[in-house]
Amino acid sequence: MKKIIVGLKRVIDYNVRVRVKSDHSGVEKDGVKMSINPFDEIALEEALRIKEKGLADEIIVVSIGSDDCQQQLRTGLAMGADRAILVESSQELYPLTLSKVLHELVKDEQPMIVLLGKQAIDNDNNQVGQMLAALWDRPQATFASEININENTATVTREVDSGLETIEIDLPAVITADLRLNEPRYVKLPDIMKAKKKPLNKVSYDEIVNSNTSDLAPSLTESPPHREKGIMVESVPELVNELKNKGLL
């Protein structure tokens, strides 16, 4: 059976204006709307399209975190994933540990592809896909804007600084989704009802990996320096004058 594992991270919704806590211990999360990391949603959409083309048999969504992640997994099931795995953990886990958890699941499930978002919009780390590929000793195709699945390979176009790079990778492999890979579908109400019946398996993080590689510790969270509002000019000559005075023309 050809499986695709998709990671879904629960993050503060991208429309929420994030605020640093007054004691600098992190950002305000109480009563804040949480959603699937947008890049992960794109990854899931792509996995579903691959399955709809008959090129994969089963889509498994995975989340690692608190029990609340069930909400995001249920949304993933409503989008069309076949089953879900919640790896429960009460502590904040770092990318290396997350990759180790995913690697254990990969050993179990033997997927054809692990499809992840290129980064989560909370910590903006952009690490887990690459780390999983390293631990698994398999190819990585990061920042994908187009994926074509062949017999035992995939052709992936990647958004890189100099343009669009196309690579061919042997499967199994890790692919991470960039913004322009697709536009995720909307979830319809009947699908939400159906999703309630789909299997959601909970496992404890301790049963999977026995250590959290927490060699990093955040010590202080601050607001970024504020850029002051400048001046308004009324005309182009005035603008050119200002730029000249600043030595920019």
Partner: peptide, 10 residues
């Protein structure tokens, strides 16, 4: 972090 809306010391 958070698209530059917070700065964290690590």
């Amino acid at each position: 972090i958070y698209a530059g809306n917070a700065i964290v010391s690590i």
